[in-house]
Design a protein around this nucleic acid. Structure first.
Lengths: 187, 187
DNA sequence: CCTATTTCTAAACGATTGTTTAGAAATAAA
DNA sequence: TTTATTTCTAAACAATCGTTTAGAAATAGG
């Protein structure tokens, strides 16, 4: 063998993920990634193939971080109140300054065009489906919900969550709180 | 005087607007604008200054189109049901193929970074404020609503609308309908 | 018709994009 | 210490970005 890497891939990919999270895919250039990750373009390409590869690994990294919130939701026994708490937890998770930076997945969905990379599209739809399933499982805790209403409520909540994620980038904390309270008022 | 323009600015800006609406600001290049608007780069710069100028005019054009829906809402006498109808009207307004293309304003808000153009930022916040005010005015039709609840409901609805606009790009018509029905169920 | 003025064509501008590459620096194994 | 292999630096790649410009084409007023 020979010379050894001067960086750990899990460490630099987390820095890349934060850059994509704040700036989006297109706005984040290889030059910015070089600077933020602290390694040369050569090393980036050697480790991740290309910009798309860096992004796909960043999505994995993001999912790991979000899974902490989702696991908390899975373990909650408060039914729909657990989901409400997840909404609040997400706001904290996405907080940057006064406003938030949204969700890396929904940000990407918003930015994505029709001709976008299929691998990325797959990650996005898989991700959304998984979260919706967790919502549905939690809603099942209330035995009075039949299958059809659970499906409808889960669909409603995943779109509400999608909207909230985008809203964190533009609306004030008070407005977001107001939104969550109204969303769960009669659910 | 001398040679006359071979195009009408209101016509070409509508084509530009549709391009921005479908593709976003960054993804839309001057080359694409040239092709879609049917005029040369020179003419674009002569008429609108630069890419940002084209975009600002496109936002005005978009607002004119959306104002038709908003005027309908203003004239409705059904209280919150008028707003619900506005939500449905918007989905139709944003429809492209199976999915929608969102709202040019909210798409831009999602795409925008902190360092973005101030003129654009102003248009966005002004626009959001105006729509929220229309929501509030309509909610006042129900005399049982006091000022505080009107403010809260208007805030809730503007975020719900913001989320719906983004959601049209990703979720199916059935899911969107489900979302609207749940949103207005107990309002 | 001539001239002044404007629009249009088409090429080029410098900067930046994502990606590649040649060669120096480093290090494990012989 | 030499050698083989890998990482790293730094420069360059072609393509595209938004923008500018020189000159041809067109036309209203003299």
């Amino acid at each position: 063998m020979a010379r050894q890497k001067a960086y750990r891939e899990e460490e630099v990919i987390e820095k890349a993920m934060n850059l994509f999270w704040r700036n989006g895919y297109e706005t984040t250039s290889m030059q910015m990634l070089e600077k933020e990750m602290g390694i040369n373009k050569f090393s980036i390409y050697a480790s991740f193939g290309n910009k798309n590869g860096v992004f796909l690994e960043s999505l994995k990294c993001y999912k790991q971080k979000l899974n902490i919130l989702i696991d908390t939701l899975k373990q909650s026994k408060n039914g729909v109140l657990g989901i409400k708490q997840y909404f609040y937890d997400f706001i904290e998770f996405a907080k940057e300054n006064e406003f938030g930076k949204g969700c890396l997945v929904t940000n990407t969905a918003n930015e994505l065009q029709d001709g976008a990379n299929d691998a990325i599209k797959n990650v996005l739809s898989t991700f959304t489906g998984e979260v919706k399933q967790v919502f549905a499982d939690v809603l099942k805790q209330d035995a009075s919900n039949n299958e059809a209403t659970i499906e409808q409520q889960a669909d409603f909540l995943i779109i509400a969550m999608f909207g909230l994620a985008s809203a964190t980038k533009v609306f004030t904390p008070t407005q977001l709180e107001n939104y969550i309270e109204h969303t769960f008022k009669r659910l």
